[in-house]
Design a protein around this nucleic acid. Structure first.
Lengths: 206, 206
DNA sequence: TCGGAAACATACACACTGTATGTCGTATAC
DNA sequence: GTATACGACATACAGTGTGTATGTTTCCGA
């Protein structure tokens, strides 16, 4: 393979990227069921043939959109967490960053509203396990190891934490734009309180 | 109107009930998308015409199934809660009963796996608000009023609690039959710990 | 320069939902 | 008791959208 990609391949990748972007828009605006591949293709001045050339199915296209959004979000969170030495603070930072990210309409709508519907719970969970879920488990494990939190069955704790964040994600996703910040803060307080309760009582606030 | 229903009406209600039961089976086994109204009708030796006569749409039929399942479940929980004077105990009882109910394959699959998909989040939430959600808010309010729990924004707390239970519901719905009990107990412990943490510190366990 | 294979476009088969229309039996009016 | 209306369905049809099979063009490599 030559070091620079052939023109054809460049074109191909460009249309694929364009397809992904158009799909993101459509899915975010009209949802999974409400989006016809015809329209996605039309946005690019292409036909459904192009879509089916690059993606195996409508679901596959959607999944690609989700993965792109998730990858970006995880990247940001990991970056922020890496620079925070204190485990509790790190966990809180991760939560805050996640809540921030959920205020983004595209991410919120696609990942938290449409994805479970489009992919089905099973596939969605697998997807989440690849991204957010692993990170959560890691953070909780760090909390337990550092003695910050008493040892509890990791599996349910991670899953519950995941769904607590999920509830925030969904609530934020469907909140009207001007309310997002307020809702975000409400959830931040509530989650902090809840998780703080699970903490060992050395009782330092926040 | 005569005190006893006309034979025609009796027949009509019978087919409607049969339709509802057949639909419950199909939806629970094959999911919403995987169920064709043709098959539901065939189970009753009827045609799709019958379905569309009694229900406005496929979604309407599904919603009727959900409502029936939810009504039954709420009824049981309310009954149990009513006989428990202590507010904290009552809340815990409600949770346990809910977890038990989620072990029922029909309820779990239809309400917690398929419903959000079939109805969409919005409609589903409205549906839940009519049932579980109201009950949760009521229980939390009772806890706050009795001083058991410090006053926090009710809205997010209720929503989070709802989703915590939801996570359990979903996990239970998709757990293989022989694991349900174990999973159920794990969640029970985890949720108790979490909620207990949110409690005012008079620190009585359970 | 000439196969050949990507990168698409076009056309078609298929599965369902929803609707419009038809039929038959039962209740009701006279 | 007969005529008629209406409710409970069955049947037929249209519309939509996915997935697939089959072109067609354009670029790449030998």
């Amino acid at each position: 393979m030559p070091p620079v990609k052939s023109r054809r391949e460049q074109y191909s990748q460009a249309t694929k990227a364009a397809l992904l972007e158009a799909a993101t828009r459509r899915f975010a605006e009209h949802g999974f069921a409400g989006t016809a591949l015809e329209d996605v293709a039309a946005d690019i001045q292409a036909s459904r043939g192009a879509v089916y050339h690059h993606f195996a199915s409508k679901t596959a296209l959607f999944e690609a959109v989700v993965e792109a959004l998730e990858t970006e979000m995880i990247r940001e969170v990991v970056e922020a967490v890496a620079t925070t030495p204190d485990t509790w603070q790190a966990a809180m930072t991760a939560m805050e960053m996640f809540l921030d990210h959920c205020c983004d309409p595209d991410y919120g709508r696609v990942v938290w509203q449409e994805a479970p519907i489009a992919l089905g719970w099973k596939r969605w969970k697998e997807c989440e396990e690849k991204f957010a879920y692993g990170l959560i488990e890691q953070l909780i494990k760090a909390l337990v190891d550092s003695g910050e939190v008493p040892p509890l069955p990791l599996e349910p704790m991670a899953r519950i934490t995941f769904h607590i964040l999920g509830s925030a994600g969904m609530a934020l996703a469907e909140a009207p734009a001007q309310d997002k910040r307020r809702v975000r803060d409400e959830y931040s307080v509530a989650i902090r309180h809840l998780l703080n309760g699970a903490r060992r009582r050395a009782d330092s606030p926040s």
